[in-house]
């Protein structure tokens, strides 16, 4: 295998892991915001200010 293969694979795998971290952060944040909104809508909101 050429050295180019190892360089390309390193950058691609790094990009995938970083993209996974960003995606996880966005999805998780949206899920919590939605859950808080649902609790608010049911009148449970104590001081559920969204961030």
């Amino acid at each position: 295998m050429s050295h180019g293969f190892f360089i390309a694979l390193s950058y691609i795998l790094t990009a995938l892991v970083v993209a996974g971290l960003i995606l996880r952060a966005v999805v998780d944040h949206r899920m919590q915001v939605r859950a808080l909104a649902e609790l608010d809508a049911r009148g449970v909101g104590r001081r559920s200010r969204r961030g």
Partner: peptide
């Protein structure tokens, strides 16, 4: 900086998760 941004975002989400948990417990108690 990318790591710090992810860390700040993760902390914000964790704070929200704990609010959700507290309110869910409050709702169940009510």
């Amino acid at each position: 900086l990318m790591g710090v941004a992810l860390h700040l975002a993760g902390m914000r989400t964790e704070i929200l998760r704990r609010r959700v948990r507290t309110l869910t417990i409050l709702e169940a108690e009510r």
